[in-house]
Design a protein around this nucleic acid. Structure first.
Length: 565
RNA sequence: CGGGGCGUGGCGCAGCCCGGUAGCGCGCCUGCUUUGGGAGCAGGAAGUCGGAGGUUCGAAUCCUCUCGCCCCGACCA
């Protein structure tokens, strides 16, 4: 491709709309342009990357025996009503009506459609196992689209659905997808981890996420190299403390604590650590508010909290008016002593002694609180997020915390959809057997953003070779003045193309600095500079995007340095 | 949805408080010079000041409403 024919405009200034680095670079490098919130056009340069990602994904899916198809993006409401998700999915579902006033939605996912296909097409266990996949545009009306293509409303997803006769078949299909996904992310050249995950909205049993490691990631993951444990922090279990509680040393006392409604201000006022404070959070419950009690230095885990009986899903903090009404104080001064609502204690509170908690009175706290003496010794549950240094569930290792971008998610759905939609086949004995389903997603567009988050420097993008829009960029110096440079550059361009490489020839009548800056911004892995002074000695200048320095190479070495054997 | 902020040539911004000729940098077009790290000079094109209504002799500026976008909190590929 000749740069002058490629219609690429790069931006020197970052548009104000972008926050994270990948979004900024994608706009500046001309990969995408925004149309509306969460809607993007993939420009020619960006599309090249997207296609490379898709190709790798499809190749590995095919290799794993999955069958590609394409389902409609628009789906009738009836299917969604069959599974109950027409109501459950909420505002994330973009609904629409056709001219006959029939309800439809723009598909955010395709379990219903594929299950409909399965119940029509699959009749015998002999057709199993089978796995269908598609690469398709989805729409989820996100509450807050942000970070460019990382959380767009319209996005491209590869979704696959497996059907098996029984659980053990499902497990095999699931493992096959696990292996395929691992191969995909390795080929993409990304640093990633597979973690245990919450199955969330889609439902089902086992589920794992493929996380690209990046500081800007929206998810926190906990892992341990010693015992191989890895989980999304959302689902990482804490280990109940077995340590003994220290004996009470001081008496219970109610003290004035003006303007200390946070753990932080309380630690300053009392000059104690946050681990000596009991934090009591009031959330909405099915039969009135519920109290969740954790240590002051810990964070509540919403998913775990929702699993408590009575607690409403999604987790909603009680509003201050409710707290005032039920407890008689404002948030920040709530404590478990004398509290007349259901209370759940986190495991870590069990070993606390001589601690501080709210007194259920405005600007008052108790100090010197002890279980057994001042409050009943609680039974404890898992309520908090794990943190760096916590023991792993096996007890043999220590957790580390990192941030990740969820680019893939695999689920064992089991029979929930097939039961709701009566998707069965006949088994060996001629009986109807409800299918076991798995579903497997990859955020194709998101991968492009994630790859940039993980591979960039102050000058721009540094594409992994496997997804770079061009393998090599040719920069002729003063091509428009020098006949020699022009000839060498065009010849080299033809030769590299003939060798099957994707090559970008920067034939613009621009100063070298402009060309260098653009080549670095758009992140082409290999750069060759053609100049008069190099030609005189039969050499080219070569530099990899990751190299510090350029080096001179013989003209005929160009091809082999770019495609190492 | 709640809270905060922003809408002024393609991009980044100033001007608004205190109403009176719409401005700067980058980019774009033409010409000349220049040519190994985002060139110089000269000339030029391009803006319903997000939209509607109002106040006023006069509104980018003040008031009301509205739309859009971004950021912070509960979802997910």
């Amino acid at each position: 491709m000749r740069f002058s024919k490629f219609g690429l405009t790069t931006l020197r200034d970052t548009p104000a709309e972008a926050e994270i680095i990948s979004h900024k670079l994608m706009l500046r490098a001309g990969l995408i342009r925004r149309l509306a919130a969460g809607l993007f056009t993939w420009m020619p340069l960006g599309l090249r990357v997207l296609r490379r990602v898709e190709k790798i994904v499809c190749e590995e899916m095919d290799r794993a025996g999955a069958l590609e198809l394409i389902m409609p993006a628009v789906q009738p409401a009836e299917l969604w009503k069959e599974t109950g998700r027409w109501d459950k999915y909420g505002n994330l579902l973009l609904r629409m009506r056709d001219r006959h006033d029939r309800d439809f939605c723009f598909g955010p996912t395709h379990e219903e459609v594929i299950t409909d296909i399965a119940r029509r097409e699959l009749r015998s266990y002999k057709q199993l196992p089978i796995n269908f996949y598609q690469v398709q545009t989805k729409f989820r009306d996100e509450i807050r689209p942000r970070f460019g293509v990382m959380r767009a409303r319209e996005f491209i997803m590869k979704d696959a659905y497996s059907f098996d006769l029984d659980q053990s078949g499902l497990e095999q299909s699931y493992q096959a997808m696990h292996a395929a996904y691992t191969a995909i992310f390795e080929r993409l050249g990304l640093k990633f981890r597979v973690v245990d995950a919450d199955s969330g909205e889609i439902g089902g049993n086992r589920s794992q996420e493929f996380m690209v490691l990046a500081d800007s990631g929206e998810d926190a993951i906990a892992w341990c190299d010693e015992d191989g444990y890895a989980s999304n922090v959302e689902t990482a279990a804490t280990v109940p403390e077995d340590g003994k509680r220290a004996a009470a040393k001081v008496n219970l006392e109610k003290i004035e604590t003006p303007k200390t409604k946070t753990v932080e201000t309380l630690t300053e006022l009392l000059e104690i650590g946050p681990d000596k404070i009991l934090k009591t959070l009031i959330v909405e419950g099915k039969k009135g508010p519920v109290a969740l009690v954790i240590r002051g230095d810990h964070e509540l885990n919403a998913i775990k909290a929702c699993k408590m009986p009575n607690v409403t899903e999604p987790l909603t903090m009680a509003n201050p008016e409710t707290i005032q009404e039920i407890i008689g104080c404002t948030p920040g001064y709530v404590g478990p002593i004398g509290l007349d609502i259901p209370v759940y204690y986190d495991h870590a509170t069990k070993c606390m002694s001589d601690f501080v908690c709210g007194a259920n009175e405005f600007e008052k706290h108790y100090i010197g609180v002890n279980f057994g003496r001042d409050i009943k010794t609680p039974t404890t549950v898992d309520l908090r997020n794990v943190k760096d240094g916590d023991p792993t569930p096996s007890g043999s290792g220590t957790l580390k915390i990192a941030r990740g971008i969820e680019v893939g998610h695999i689920f064992q759905l089991g029979q929930s959809y097939s039961e709701a939609m009566r998707a069965t086949v006949q088994d060996k004995d001629g009986n109807d057997a409800t299918l076991f389903m798995g579903c497997y997603g990859i955020g194709v567009t998101r991968i492009v953003g994630a790859a940039i988050e993980q591979n960039h420097d102050e000058r721009g993008i540094i594409w992994p070779e496997s997804i770079a829009p061009f393998k090599v960029v040719l920069i002729p110096i003063n091509m428009h003045q020098s006949e020699t440079v022009r000839e060498v550059a065009t010849t080299l361009y033809s030769e590299l193309k003939a060798a099957g490489l994707d090559v970008l020839l920067d034939d613009r009548d621009a100063r070298p600095g402009v060309k260098f800056a653009d080549a670095e911004l758009i992140g082409i892995p290999h750069r060759l500079v053609i100049s008069e002074r190099g030609i005189k000695v039969g050499q080219l200048e070569y530099r990899h995007r990751r190299d510090e320095e350029a080096k001179m190479i013989a003209y005929d070495k160009a091809l082999q340095i770019i495609t190492p054997s």
